[in-house]
Design a protein around this nucleic acid. Structure first.
Lengths: 186, 186
DNA sequence: TTGCTCCTCACGTCACGTGAGGTGGC
DNA sequence: TTGCTCCTCACGTCACGTGAGGTGGC
C-alpha cells in the first residue's frame, strides 16, 4: 500500500533532527545534501517538516564514508548518477570501478604519507625532549639559546622552518621590566 | 653588514613568484601566509615587490608540513608564537611538546582509519568485479538488476548507501524510445 | 617599447556554522 | 498555552582560486 506520493504506509518516518542525531551530522549538513541532490525526504508533513524513510540513514552514512575517502560532495553525486546510469548498461559500472580503483591508490598514497609524518613528529618530539633537559639544568632557561647537541644528526623538518628567521617584527608580549622579575631566581 | 632595514647585504633575494615556484605554492597562498603573520618578506623593492631571504623557503615548506599534519594556518601561527615565547622560559616549550604529542596520536588514528577505508574500497571493488561478469554473460545488461550472489557474505558499505532508495525523482537522461533502440540486441 | 612579473582589491568556492525571524505539533 | 522542533533566508569561515585594473624592471 502506498499513499498519493508513492510512499509506503506504516513506515516510521524520521524527522531531520532524528536523522542528524543518528548519523552525527548537523541539520544544516543534511539540508545541504538535499540541495546537492544527494538525499531527499520521502515526503513532507502538512506543516512542511521533512520526513525521511529509514533508508535515508544508510544514505547519510554512505555520504560520510565517501567523504572520509576523500570524495567531494560533487563527486559523491557523480557516483550516484553513474550508479543510476548503470541501469542502462554496464559502461557506467566500468566507470565506477575505475573511480574506486583510483581512490584506492590515493588512499594507499595517503597512508604512506601519513606514516612519513608520524616519523617526522616522532623525530621532532625526540629533539624537543632534550630541550626539557636544558630547562632542568638551569644553565639556560631560553630553549632557543640551547647549546646542547640534541643528540641527533639531522635537524627535524618540524624545527627547521620554525627557526627560520627573517627579521619578522617581534611581537612584544610583556614589557621587559616585568619579564625580568618573572624569571628572577629566588 | 646590514642595510637600514637590518637585512644582510649580498643576500640573494627571491621574488614571490620564485618562492611560489620553488615550493609548489601559488602566489595567492604566499600572500595569505603573510596576512596571517606566518611569513614576511625580508624587504621590498623600491617598486613595492616583495623580496624574500632564502630562509623563507624553509618557512613555506614548514607551513606545508604542518598543513599535511592537519594543522590549520591559525594553529601553525600559534606554534610559531609558542616557539617565540619559549625565549622567555620553558613553559611554552612544554606546550609545544604537548601539542605535537596530540598530533602524533591523531596521525596514528588517521592511519588506522585510512587502513579501514582501504579495506572497504577493496571489498567494494571485489563486489563490483562480479558485476563485470553479469555484463559479459549477456543475461542482464542492467547491473542494478543483477541476480548473481556476488560471492560475498556482507554487502560492502560502499554499496549499501548507493542502493538506498527513497523515491528520489529519477533524472531522465534520455527519452525511453531512444533507450530501447540503443539496447536492442541485433 | 615590449612582455613578463608584480601590486592591491575583491568576489567566488567548498562544506558547512550560526544566527534571525517565523511557524508546526504533541 | 508552553516548549521544543522545524522552516527559509542569508551572511560568516577557511584556504585559497580567479580575475580586474594598474604598475615595476630587465
Amino acid at each position: 500500500m502506498t499513499d498519493k506520493n508513492g510512499n509506503e504506509l506504516g513506515t516510521q518516518y524520521l524527522r531531520v533532527g532524528d536523522l542528524a542525531r543518528l548519523t552525527g551530522k548537523t541539520v544544516r549538513a543534511i539540508h545541504l545534501y538535499e540541495e546537492l541532490d544527494l538525499l531527499q525526504p520521502a515526503t513532507r508533513s502538512s506543516g512542511g517538516f521533512r520526513l525521511y524513510s529509514p533508508a535515508a540513514l544508510e544514505r547519510v552514512r554512505w555520504i560520510d564514508l565517501l567523504q572520509d575517502m576523500g570524495f567531494s560532495l560533487q563527486e559523491a553525486r557523480t557516483v550516484l548518477e553513474r550508479w543510476r546510469d548503470s541501469e542502462d548498461g554496464p559502461e557506467a559500472m566500468d566507470e565506477l570501478r575505475a573511480l574506486f580503483g583510483r581512490k584506492l591508490e590515493e588512499m594507499r598514497e595517503q597512508i604512506r604519507r601519513k606514516q612519513q609524518l608520524e616519523a617526522e613528529l616522532l623525530e621532532g618530539l625526540k629533539y624537543l625532549e632534550t630541550c626539557r633537559v636544558c630547562g632542568e639544568s638551569g644553565a639556560v632557561d631560553r630553549c632557543v639559546d640551547c647549546a646542547q647537541p640534541h643528540d641527533v644528526e639531522r635537524e627535524p623538518a618540524l624545527l627547521t622552518g620554525l627557526k627560520a628567521a627573517f627579521h619578522a617584527p617581534r611581537r612584544v608580549v610583556r614589557p621587559a621590566l616585568v619579564r625580568v622579575e618573572d624569571h628572577a631566581k629566588p
